[in-house]
Design a protein around this nucleic acid. Structure first.
Length: 245
RNA sequence: GCUUCUUGGGCAAUU
């Protein structure tokens, strides 16, 4: 069944979703393999990716008590991503409920949900959910921080974003630094806090991270507007790709 | 142990 599952996954990688469904329906009888949970999850993933979310959901219902954490995560992600936030929340509640078929949300589940919450401009809910996650003993990872920081920046919740950023500095997990820094710097530029933006640029340089040129130019312009020409030229030199001389 | 689920811009990656 491993090679059967690998075949299904290969179909997803190649974006031949109809072929995945076909193979899932026809091959087991033809080559006498028993689809396992991974097979079911893979085909549900394929249905989600081809936009047949409702079909994916009915496959999920057919599984009864079988669905595992991957099944839930796949469907939650698809629901949230396609703008069906409240249905996602309903499914979350179903997963998170006390019953014999209970499935404990893991860090990935929370990461998926946190992204959805900030995308819905529900920063407070996201902050609460993150705290709840930590309260359960789950550890925030790079995805968690990235989702929170980028989402809070976009929502203009800069104080909270900075808190998570500082929190992140103390951890050793490696976030996706490019988007984390880009989101923070852009948000502070737009909020007119050019000093903070400059400081973040310098932090990024220290981490040997090359930032987006256009964004750096905006910081340079902002510094010049404030008469901070020394900082402006520092940043210009630091950011030059052929720099370090 | 190996196959399924969440973020990601560029560069590079010895045939």
């Amino acid at each position: 069944a491993f090679s059967f599952n690998a075949l299904l996954q290969a179909g997803i990688d190649a974006e031949k979703f109809e072929r995945v469904i076909e193979a899932f329906e026809e091959l087991p009888a033809a080559i006498s393999v028993q689809p396992d949970m991974i097979s079911h999850n893979t085909v549900i993933h394929a249905l989600c990716k081809m936009g047949s979310l409702d079909e994916a959901l009915s496959k999920f219902r057919e599984l009864g008590n079988e669905p595992d954490i991957v099944t839930f995560n796949t469907l939650l992600n698809a629901l949230y991503k396609s703008g069906r936030f409240s249905e996602g929340e309903t499914l979350w509640a179903e997963m998170d409920v006390e019953s014999e078929s209970r499935v404990d949300p893991n860090v990935r589940s929370y990461n998926i949900r946190l992204r959805a919450m900030v995308a819905e401009n529900k920063s407070d809910d996201a902050i609460r959910a993150a705290a709840e996650m930590l309260g359960k003993g789950l550890k925030a990872d790079a995805y968690t921080y990235n989702a929170l920081i980028c989402g809070l920046c976009v929502n203009g919740n800069l104080d909270e974003a900075l808190k998570y950023y500082e929190d992140l500095q103390r951890k050793k997990c490696r976030p996706h630094l490019f988007s984390t820094y880009s989101a923070l710097i852009q948000a502070f530029v737009e909020a007119g806090d050019i000093d903070r933006a400059f400081k973040l640029c310098m932090d990024a340089v220290k981490r040997r991270l090359s930032l987006d040129e256009a964004l750096c130019d905006r910081v340079v312009d902002g510094l010049n507007d404030k008469g901070k020409t020394k900082e402006a030229s520092t940043l210009k030199i630091m950011m030059r790709p052929e720099g370090y001389n």
